[in-house]
Amino acid sequence: MIEVRGLHLRYGGVAALDGVDLALRAGEFVALLGASGSGKTTLLRSLAGLEFPDAGQVLIEGRDMAAVPARERGVGFVFQNYALFRHMTVFENIAFGLRIRPRGQRPGRTEIARRVEELLALVRLPGMGERHPDQLSGGQRQRVALARALAIEPRVLLLDEPFGALDAKVRKELRHWLRGLHDRLGLTSLFVTHDQDEALELADRVAVMRDGRVVQFDTPEALLAAPADAGVAGFLGDAVPVDCVVREGRAWFEGLPPVEVAGVKGGKAVAFLRPVDLLAEAGAGEARVAAARQDGRGVRLTVEVAGMLLEATPTPGWAPRRGEACRVTVLAARVFPA
C-alpha cells in the first residue's frame, strides 16, 4: 500500500532521513515512534509530498510518487497544530478540498453541504459548521482537521502528533475514537508520536525511528518481547538499564537473583528491566521498600537493591510499607552485550 525504499534527505549537511525503508499493508494502523529529531515528521511529510527526498523512492498503491506533487497525491494529512484556515468557518474548512476541485469533478453546492454535514456528524461536531476555528477547543479543532482531511476521501491518512497538543483526558478519548474511525473507513494510516503508550496501545505495528532510520518495525508485543537493540529496549516500557554478567545462559546481577536469557554471548552485558519484570514479595531478602505509593493504576513500588532504585510489581495482597525488607524475583530481562 505504502512503500518507502532507501529514503535519504539532508538539511544543510544534517541527515534528517538516512536510508528509511518501510512497507505498510492496506488497512494497517501504524505508528512512527521516536524521540524528537529522529526524522519521523520528515518521513511523514515526504510521504505527503511536502518534503523532497534527495534519494530513494516513495510508492503509494504501487505508484512512484517522485513526480507527483502534494496536491495530486490524494493523501489526507492532519498537521500537528491542525493548520485550520483561520479566516474560514468550520464548514468552509471542511468543504475546501471539494470546492477547489476542477469544474468537472466538483460536486454541486447541495452535495457539498450534505457531505460536510456528514463529516461533521462523523467527527461528532454536528451543528458546529458556522463556528470559526478560534471558537473551538483543542480537541474540537483536531476533529475539524481530521474531517477536512477526510473530505477528499483519501485512502491513506497521515497524522503528525495528532494528540500532541491535547490534555491527557481528551487524548485518551480521541485515541480510541480515531482507531475506531480508521477501522470503520478502511483507511491505511500512519501517525507520528513520541509517546510510547500511544503507539503501543493504538497501532497494529510500530516503526521505531532513531537518527533518521527505522531501527525496528514490528507489532507492539514483539517490540516489548524482543527489542532489536539496547536503544529500543531502553526506549520502551519504562525499562531501566542494569549491569550484569552473562554466564551459562543466565544473567547474573548484584543483589538480584539470576534470570534465564537465551542467545546472548557470555561476558559483561546490560539488562533492561521493566516494572513488570520485577516481582517483589514480603519476607526477608536483600531488598528494601524505598517508596510505595497508591495511584489510579495500583501500587507503584520502588525497591532498593544493591544501591539501585528499581520500580517493581508487588505480589497481590501485599501492602508494602516504607523501609520493610522484601525479596525480588526477576521474571524476564532483555539483555544486550555491553
Binding site: 505527503a48 509530498g49 511536502l50 506533487p69 502534494a70 496536491r71 495530486e72 497525491r73 490524494g74 493523501v75 489526507g76 494529512f77 498537521f79 497544530n81 493548520a83 485550520l84 484556515f85 483561520r86 479566516h87 474560514m88 475546501f96 478540498g97 477547489i100 476541485r101 477536512r148 482531511a149 473530505a151 477528499i152
Partner: peptide
C-alpha cells in the same frame, strides 16, 4: 506555511492556494 501546506494536501494548486488561503490572511 502550514495553512498553505494544508491547502496543497487538499488538492489546491498555487493560484487557488494564494487566492483562497494566503490572500484572505
Amino acid at each position: 506555511r502550514t495553512e498553505e501546506e494544508a491547502a496543497a494536501t487538499l488538492g489546491a494548486g498555487g493560484w487557488a492556494m494564494f487566492r483562497r488561503v494566503t490572500l484572505p490572511n
